[in-house]
Amino acid sequence: MADIPVLMIGDLLLVSIQNELNDRIAISLQERILERLNKQHAPALLIDISSLDLVDSYIGRVLTETAQMARLMNTDVVIVGMQPAVAITMTEMGLSLRDIKTASSLERGITALGYQFSKNVPDNDAANDAPLNGSIPTSSEPAPSEIESQHG
C-alpha cells in the first residue's frame, strides 16, 4: 500500500489521509512527518482527516501525539474535517487537542493557519487579454494597475 502523501505547498506541510489507517501506517506517518519537519522546518502543518470514518483509541492517540509533537517543534497545526463519529470517540477518550486548531474545511483550515486564500489573482499577463478584433498591444500599453483603475 502506498504511503500517505506528505506534501509541501509553499511552507505549509499538507497531509491528507484518504485511506483507512492501520496502526502500522499511522506510526509510519508520524515518523515521516516529524522527520520532514526536522529536515526542513515548516511553520505550519495541516492534517486533513475528512475521509476518516472512525478511529480507535490507538490511532486517535497517534494522531493527537503527532500534532502535539509538531507543536513542540514550533509548528502551527490544524486538524481539518473531523467527522462526528470520530469527534465523539476522541472526546470519550479524553483527547481534546488543546492548543491545536481545528477546522471543518480545507479552506478554513488554511485560513486558520494564517494563509490567505484569494480567488482574485493579480493578472500580470495583460497581453493575453487583447480584445478580439486583433489589435496587438504595444510596449506602450499602460501598466496593469492602471488598466484596472481605469476600468474601475
Binding site: V80, G81, M82, A87, M90, S96, T102, A103, S105, R108
Partner: peptide
C-alpha cells in the same frame, strides 16, 4: 463533552 466534540470538528 458535546462542546469538545464540536470544537474538534472545527
Amino acid at each position: 463533552s458535546l462542546a469538545s466534540s464540536v470544537r474538534l470538528m472545527g
